[in-house]
């Protein structure tokens, strides 16, 4: 039995499937460099979870988990906060820069209403404070649904 439901059988994901769905989505929506993940392996966990981890795997003992979950392809494709916090600086489109006051609200996990929106269309977006990638949100019109995982939400004093 696996440690939790985050990771199923550590099988390498069907490369074609990843290329055609997840990577193509990440590249086209966020403008990532197509070679960004070349040094790592992509793996498919349970429930469409896509992990980015080391290229070299082991057969024994059983892998509990590896690397970091970068997206979930279960129905639609959803990028993770961890992906954006690691590679967010490489994102060239569909990002929203927010103010310091908004950033404090965002990291608490609250949904927000945004004013004038540039560089982003409806769907998943990167939230940036200055040049610093904070995480993921889902944009619909001027409404931003906060995708910050509950375990990460925090009140910050210094930002």
């Amino acid at each position: 039995m696996s440690y939790d439901d985050d990771y199923g059988n550590p099988e390498p994901a069907d490369p074609k499937k990843i290329q055609s769905e997840v990577l193509a989505y990440l590249y086209s929506r966020f403008g990532f460099d197509q070679k960004l993940f070349d040094n790592f392996g992509l793996y498919l966990g349970s429930k469409g979870k896509i992990y980015l981890g080391p290229k070299q795997l082991i057969k024994e003992p059983k892998i509990v988990t590896l690397g970091i979950m970068i997206a979930r392809a279960d129905g639609g494709i959803k990028p993770t906060t961890n992906l954006f916090q690691i590679f967010g600086k490489q994102i060239t489109k569909n990002y929203i820069k927010i103010s310091k006051e908004q950033a404090i609200v965002y990291v608490k996990g609250e949904d927000m209403n945004l004013g004038d929106i540039q560089n982003a269309s409806d769907g998943y977006v990167l939230i940036k404070y200055g040049d610093i990638p904070l995480g993921c949100g889902f944009l619909k019109g001027h409404a931003l649904k906060n995708m910050m995982p509950k375990a990460k939400r925090i009140g910050l004093k210094y930002i």
Binding site: Y3, F40, G53, P61, I63, T65, L66, G67, I68, I86
Partner: peptide, 26 residues
């Protein structure tokens, strides 16, 4: 769980987590 959390938080990508008594490790 704490190990996994810290690996994610730090952006550590080259790690595989295993849960084995080291004395019986392959």
């Amino acid at each position: 769980r704490a190990l996994k959390f810290n690996i994610e938080k730090t952006g550590t990508l080259n790690t595989i987590i295993t849960n084995r008594d080291l004395r019986t490790f392959p």
